[in-house]
């Protein structure tokens, strides 16, 4: 079992969600996050003063899937979230030791 985590541009969330629905993904978790990558932050001017803004808003998407599905999920996210510009984000996959469905107590692949 794998956890796929993706950091993408906020306005791409709809496209990513639609792409994942198309390949039959049953559930995902979304959070609003901030951070920076190679693009770093930037300066902004407000009321005549210049400010350094270190963190850029992003959306984090988390999906738990089986071994085989993980590669398809990664492909779908990369394809749908890409604009070709700096700041498009990252996707990574981590291995999960255990999953439990809270309602039934099912474990492992049954809980997916």
């Amino acid at each position: 079992m794998k956890l796929v985590t993706a950091i993408v541009k906020p306005f791409k969330l709809d496209d990513v969600k639609n792409a994942l629905e198309l390949i039959g993904i049953a559930g995902l978790t979304v959070s609003e996050v901030q951070g920076f990558g190679r693009q770093r932050g930037h300066t902004e001017v407000y009321r005549g003063a210049e400010y350094q803004v270190d963190f850029v808003p992003k959306v984090r998407i988390e999906i738990v899937v089986g071994e085989i599905d993980a590669a398809r999920v990664v492909d779908a996210i990369v394809e749908s979230a890409s604009t070709g510009q700096i700041g498009d984000g990252k996707v990574w996959v981590t291995t999960i030791d255990e999953i439990v469905r809270v309602r039934t107590g099912e474990r492992g692949a049954d809980a997916l």
Binding site: Q34, H42, E44, Y46, V53, D54, V56, P57, Q85
Partner: peptide, 25 residues
């Protein structure tokens, strides 16, 4: 806001500033 200036929104996007940054780079 997380360590940012406070003059601009913490969450909700700074896309235009981001775009400027892209052009700069």
């Amino acid at each position: 806001s997380l360590g940012s200036s406070g003059a601009t929104a913490p969450l909700g996007g700074q896309a235009r500033a981001e775009a400027r940054n892209i052009e700069g780079s």
